[in-house]
Design a binder for these strands. Sequence first.
DNA 1: GCAGAAATGAAAATGATTTTCATTTCCGGG
DNA 2: CCCGGAAATGAAAATCATTTTCATTTCTGC
Lengths: 121, 121
Amino acid sequence: MNKSELKVISVLERVGGFASAQQLHQLLLRSGESIGLTSVYRALQSLLDDKIVDQLRKEDGEAIYRLCGEAHHHHLVCKSCGSTVEIEGSALEKWAKAMAEEHGYREVGHLAEVFGICPSC
Amino acid sequence: MNKSELKVISVLERVGGFASAQQLHQLLLRSGESIGLTSVYRALQSLLDDKIVDQLRKEDGEAIYRLCGEAHHHHLVCKSCGSTVEIEGSALEKWAKAMAEEHGYREVGHLAEVFGICPSC
DNA sequence: GCAGAAATGAAAATGATTTTCATTTCCGGG
DNA sequence: CCCGGAAATGAAAATCATTTTCATTTCTGC
Ligand SMILES: [Zn+2]
Ligand SMILES: [Zn+2]
Ligand SMILES: [Zn+2]
Ligand SMILES: [Zn+2]
């Protein structure tokens, strides 16, 4: 855990939700920290590998991050209000892996989202 | 509905699932069509506006598209050549349903694709 | 204090997507 | 047919987030 990672974690705590790498960089600069954009990206990548942050994509494809100490997971997204809930995905992981193996595919990844209308909507 | 849009629709039909703009362009060229990448992007944007295609984002942020309104199914997609295999999804269906119920979500749907590199690539 | 490792950040490279702009194709009125 | 404007097309340039490169700085253990 190096300086950049600590700075990024601290600004993510301050933000409290999702933010892009560029936004986090701006926020850090504005709050007087000295850090390069490269280091923000590196820190985020490292925090992502360590499962300390969670990455999503905006509709335009830009990555956004938030603190989230959970393992790889998927989301249940409300079609109405957009709120997201993390869901347990081991059944899905197994399915994706099994399907890929069955057909001899390598370097496998997957993508899955469940949509619905949340109880409060 | 112009020529480019027709070409893009036809290749999307052939693909049967999700594909990126770049993949669609390559597939069109390989199948002998003459079309520019710009026109593929333009056609996809227009089809998106008209709700004729759906857009998703891969984990790396690249946009992928598919024809709307196809019978529900899932695919194993080759990241390299774009070829797709239809896969059995009952385990996934169960998982999505269970997750939604567990959190009290209504009107549930889901999206899932598995990506990898096929044996012949 | 010192060498080697890790961290840092500026600048260049990358890659998808969008924009610009000149050219070509369409199409309806004359 | 023929013309002129509108729509379509695509090559090249621009954009923009992200990654890579690489030279410099900071750490760390001895
Ligand atoms: Zn809601
Ligand atoms: Zn997963
Ligand atoms: Zn392949
Ligand atoms: Zn399904």
